[in-house]
Nucleic acid binder design. Structure first.
Lengths: 222, 222
DNA sequence: TCAAAAGTGTTAGATTTACACCCATGA
DNA sequence: TCATGGGTGTAAATCTAACACTTTTGA
């Protein structure tokens, strides 16, 4: 038995997942009612404790998989939260992760089995512990990295219109974008590729469907 | 006794401090030889375990204070490191913090008591565990936030020449900057204020000494 | 025929980059 | 007097931001 550090105390280490989706031109957050004490019944992010045989990153992916059945989603560490009393039960240091889901690609039954709900970001209920702060940090992170990481790729279905893409940018950045400037910029960075397909669901005229050019950005799900 | 989460296992939670200084126109990192098993004698960042009555942030500040005698230094969480085998002894999740010190403002005796040394960033020895990766992440963070956080303020003495300031930028960004463009830009953002003082140590002609304009950026040390 | 979303260029201003010489002084 | 680092301006190129009308088609 190893006892190198036995003079020191241990703590529970947890992960909490800030799961974003995009639907109805709005950013959504996946929340559930907390199913354990303390705080049972409060709105909460999905989380779990880090096990002995998994890294913290792996724990985050596991929690997300258990909830959604999806693997290899975009996921990124946001920050470790370590206030002494952040958890009303015991000392828990939690590492927050931001995850992005293509809502429309998957059916919602698994979420619902867990009592999960997509909630509009601008209508968040009070959240358990410091989860609200985690969400805020995650949004700040999304805004900073929207142009350098495959964020929009992870939120949109495989084929999408430029208007949809613009709405994702607007939802994340929280501001309106000029349509012409936006299209010019997107075209100049080789991000997307036009397909032959036309989407007729949002207008009578129909809009060209695009896909992301970088095949590396395609996520592989189980 | 609280036992809410007793089905789960705990882990040691530690902090590691990536301490940067600036001297001789180069970024320096404070390293020490690890003084405990496992890994005794290896070059290592300064770290410590998070105690029961302190937040993770507080633990980081405490470790830095114990080493340097300085409080209220610029400090920022970098990332949590949680690989299963990252520590060869036991399961330790470590949260890395980046700290910035004005080397020339303080004498080095306290550091030396701890066996600490300033090492050139481009001449790092092999480091314990994943500390090298922590350093890399910290540099990336510095580069990203050099224009939005009081980073150069925290590395330079209270009075400095524009050439010194430029050297800090160059050391952090790892690239040469055009002198005229640099001065134009610095002047345009109201970052610094010219004083009446002249520094004659680096040239016969002498260079004007500047101070940072924003008093909020001044650090208060013990 | 008209309502509704798709699609398309130009111009002014701001920002960024490249670039070279004189100044002041101590040795 | 000269070697050394301090200090300064301009012009071209790039990027950003503002702005309005035509197209298509199903209802």
């Amino acid at each position: 038995m190893t006892t190198y550090y036995s003079g020191n105390t241990k703590a529970y280490v947890a992960v909490d997942c800030i799961i974003f989706g995009f639907d109805d031109n709005k950013l959504k957050l996946m929340l559930g009612k907390r199913q354990m004490d303390p705080g049972r019944g409060e709105w909460s992010l999905y989380g779990g404790f880090v096990g002995t045989d998994e890294s913290v990153d792996e724990a985050a992916h596991r929690v997300l998989y258990e909830l959604t059945g999806l693997k290899n989603l975009y996921m990124r560490q946001v920050e470790a939260f370590g206030a002494v009393d952040r958890d009303p039960g015991e000392r828990v240091v939690s590492i927050a992760y931001c995850a992005l889901i293509k809502i429309s690609d998957y059916d919602h039954r698994l979420y619902e089995e867990h009592g999960a709900r997509w909630v509009d970001l601008d209508q968040l209920p009070p959240l358990y512990s410091d989860h609200r702060e985690m969400v805020q940090k995650a949004i700040t992170l999304l805004r900073k990295s929207i142009n350098s990481e495959p964020i929009t790729n992870s939120l949109l279905p495989d084929y999408f219109t430029l208007t949809q893409l613009q709405h994702v940018y607007e939802a994340i950045l929280g501001e309106n974008i000029d349509k012409r400037n936006f299209r010019k910029r997107i075209m100049s960075i080789d991000l997307v590729e036009k397909t032959e397909m036309i989407d007729k669901t949002t207008s009578k005229r129909g809009a060209a469907l695009y896909c992301f050019r970088d095949k590396r950005s395609e996520q592989h799900h189980i």
